[in-house]
């Protein structure tokens, strides 16, 4: 359903024939080979694959924190290979939201200030608008009562909720998350996934990676990576089940 809808729009993310090599001294490590894919608004997509298959590398390229060795990476209409560092940073601020595996909140700022921070970087909203936006999001992720707690005073699950609110606060075109549940226990991880699904139903586009088959089963669409290559652009429920079975 999502896919059919997606194809009618210009994709937010479009990769064509992308290679990524890492250089370890004189050795070239090919991390991605000939990856082509596109992601449209409203999708809830998982990049699944074993450890070392290139998930993080792929997300880094889409997240504009790294550039491809070959091929085109087009994010929100911009060809990232043409952009300088400053413009890439700006693109990240404008169009992308990030949720990190280890939350990476600013330790000395409370939840409210952490979530508000990208808005301050953008400098578009006034104080009242920012406050409304931030409190609204903290409410959506269910931690408005912790608005004035610092990360150190919050549990892992609560911190990841703050991180999700921070990623959403600028209303980005797409939210990226590299194994967002890996540092959470399975119950908290499930709750975070359900939250992301809920936010997706309200319109946010998600793309995240995981190697946990239980997480894969909740995805709207699954892109399977094996050895840096796309094995399946839209794995079926059976594939997912098989994957899950294989993992156990």
């Amino acid at each position: 359903m999502t896919t059919a809808f997606a194809q009618t729009e210009t994709p937010i993310v479009k990769l064509v024939g992308v290679d990524k090599d890492y250089h370890l001294g004189s050795v070239i490590v090919p991390a991605l080979r000939d990856v082509s894919l596109s992601i449209a608004a409203g999708e809830f997509t998982v990049i699944a694959g074993p450890s070392g298959s290139g998930k993080t590398t792929l997300l880094n390229l889409i997240g504009c924190v790294d550039v491809a060795t070959r091929g085109d990476v087009v994010i929100d209409g911009a060809d990232t290979r043409q952009l300088k560092e400053k413009a890439l940073t700006d693109l990240r601020l404008r169009s992308l939201g990030f949720i990190f595996q280890s939350f990476n909140l600013v330790g000395v700022l409370d939840a409210f200030d952490n979530v508000e921070f990208p808005l301050l970087l953008q400098g578009k909203l006034n104080k009242v608008e920012r406050r409304d936006r931030v409190m609204g999001l903290l409410q959506q992720v269910g931690i408005e009562q912790y608005a004035h707690h610092r990360p150190g005073e919050l549990s892992g699950g609560q911190r990841q909720r703050v991180a999700i609110a921070r990623a959403l606060v600028t209303q980005p075109r797409i939210v990226l998350a590299d194994e967002p549940t890996a540092n959470l226990d399975s119950k908290t991880g499930t709750a975070i996934l359900e939250l992301m699904q809920e936010l997706n139903r309200r319109g946010t586009t998600f793309l995240f990676s995981t190697h946990d088959p239980r997480v894969v089963s909740r995805a709207g669409r699954v892109i399977r990576l094996v050895d840096g290559q796309i094995a399946d652009l839209n794995a079926s429920a059976e594939d997912v089940a098989a994957l899950a079975a294989g993992a156990h």
């Binding site: 997240g63 924190v65 560092e85 400053k86 940073t89 700006d90 990240r92 601020l93 404008r94 992308l96 939201g97 990030f98 990190f100 990476n104 909140l105 600013v106 921070f117 990208p118 970087l121 953008q122 921070r166 990623a167």
Partner: peptide, 10 residues
């Protein structure tokens, strides 16, 4: 790194 990733300029 996180601040840079979410769009803080150098």
């Amino acid at each position: 790194g996180a601040l840079r990733a979410i769009g803080m300029q150098r």
